[in-house]
Amino acid sequence: MRIFRYTFSLFMFAWLTAGAQTDNLDNGGIRLGFDISRIAVPFLEEGRVEYDGSVDLRINKDLYPVIEIGWGDFETEGMNFLYRSTGFSLRTGIDKNYLKKDNVNNMGMFFAGVRYGVSFFKHESTDLKISDPYWGDFSGAIPMKNMNAHWLEFSTGIRAKIFNNIYLGWSLRGRLLLYKSDDLNMSPNYIPGFGKVNGRTNLGFRYSVFYQLPL
């Protein structure tokens, strides 16, 4: 319920700010973004820390190529072990804006887009214990191993100017895992940038603040 209230207030904020678009005179088409919803992640899920930023660029009235860079670290307690996965992600793609703009310099958006994501990360298991009443309990570890993964990420959302060069917006992400490194001992439980691995698909949410470079 707490999660619900938290997200609802974000929507209300987006809703209110969306109506507050003002004219502006700059021509800059490059925006830097920082995903502020990541700040809440460690509070919602213990052991999970993420940072995420983006650069997007307007190439014409409706098309915005984007690069997103993230870092993630996830530690969790499994049944008889501790698991840790940590590393970087890079997503590149393009968003198309469907919002009829009232001002060419306003980069407010209702968008849908696609990204190709790749992550380079490491994972390990420690404190691994298997109980064996006959031969005696076993304890061990799976040493840290370099892994990588690729996925397709579909995004949609809204973005609104709140004042001068500052924008706020949220987006919903649907991800489709295309490849993950093989590990005979364990399949990755968490891929930075992709999230928890539970099958091949995953849903995500981002709420970001953007700064439009004054060019």
Binding site: G78, N80, Y83, S125, I130, F138, N185
Partner: peptide, 14 residues
């Protein structure tokens, strides 16, 4: 022998 992760909730088996 090989340690194998069954799932997060079931843990490792040999």
């Amino acid at each position: 022998r090989e340690l194998h992760l069954l799932s997060m909730e079931c843990g490792f088996a040999t």
